[in-house]
């Protein structure tokens, strides 16, 4: 009987051992990392922004000309009006497009070799441009007298002057008067120009409100293994990009996302001062 009990205990011990399979693949430590550089805390003007078109015959189709018969390059356009408070133009802070140089390197787990991942650090407005502002400010005002019939206006909201919708706007409210005038010029009728900041007047690419013709700058994306360290360096270009109007220089900030979650414990300087051509330099190790 005792032998039977011993054999049973032995058999019970062997059962879980048989379940172990050393050949089972181990869980992968690969994680997806994204690095995003953004310029924030820039001071710029706030604008009340709306979408506008003319519909004299009330057929619901935007007219090709304005009420004076002037040809409109774009039947539907975005108009901006500087936001005021107590009779004074007001400004806000937020993100702004800014060109920057970038260098991303990696130190593989267990090594001391720094491997540069970016092929160029050259200032490149196509690839190394920080995202536009995407935030709406409170207190937006309707167009009011700036949108008299037969104009039809759909309010978008109060936007910072570095918002992409504003930047990409092409409309000038009075193109005949303001073809060669700076943005926000106050004409002899004491009326604020309705062209948006950064608008290349009538020479730019038209787009519908709320749509973006070009995607936002893509974050730098790569796969990392546990123990890998990412080194990120970036530096602002001197001077704002074309069409961006800011009152003070932005700070440069580096953001790291791991599997979609933002990492907060970056080592080093991940936010630069607002000085001219300021830079950041930080690292992050996957644990």
């Amino acid at each position: 009987m005792r032998q039977l009990v011993c054999l049973a205990v032995l058999a019970l011990c062997l059962i879980p051992m048989a379940g172990c399979d050393s050949e089972q693949p181990q869980g992968s430590d690969a994680q997806t990392m994204q690095v995003l550089i953004q310029a924030g805390n820039a001071s710029a003007g706030l604008y009340d922004v709306w979408e506008q078109y003319y519909d004299a015959n009330l057929d619901g189709i935007p007219d090709e000309t304005d009420p004076m018969g002037n040809f409109l390059p774009q039947p539907v356009f975005v108009a901006c009006r500087r936001a005021f408070q107590n009779g004074q133009p007001i400004s806000g802070t937020g993100k702004t497009p800014w060109e920057y140089s970038l260098e991303i390197s990696i130190i593989r787990a267990g090594t001391t070799t720094i491997e540069r991942l970016t092929t160029t650090e050259a200032l490149n407005s196509t690839f190394n441009m920080t995202p536009y502002s995407d935030e709406f400010a409170t207190g937006a005002q309707p167009p009011g007298n700036d949108c008299l019939p037969p104009a039809v206006c759909n309010s978008i909201g109060r936007l910072l002057g570095t918002n992409r919708i504003v930047i990409d706007s092409t409309y000038d409210a009075d193109p005949q008067d303001n073809m060669n005038l700076p943005v926000n010029f106050v004409d002899n009728l004491n009326r604020w120009d309705l062209a948006c900041p950064g608008s290349p007047l009538l020479n730019g690419e038209p787009r519908m409100s709320g749509t973006l013709a070009a995607p936002l700058p893509s974050p730098f994306t790569m796969g990392l293994e546990k123990g890998d360290t990412i080194l990120v360096k970036a530096r602002k270009k001197i001077g704002e990009p074309n069409g961006v109007e800011v009152f003070s220089e932005p700070t440069l900030q580096g953001l790291v996302y791991l599997n979609g979650l933002q990492i907060s414990n970056l080592t080093g300087t991940s936010v630069s001062p607002s000085d001219q051509a300021a830079g950041i330099s930080f690292s992050f190790t996957v644990n």
Binding site: A122, L123, R235, I280
Partner: peptide
């Protein structure tokens, strides 16, 4: 954490 030497 030292200043980088990137352009410009």
């Amino acid at each position: 954490n030292i200043p980088n030497l990137l352009n410009p």
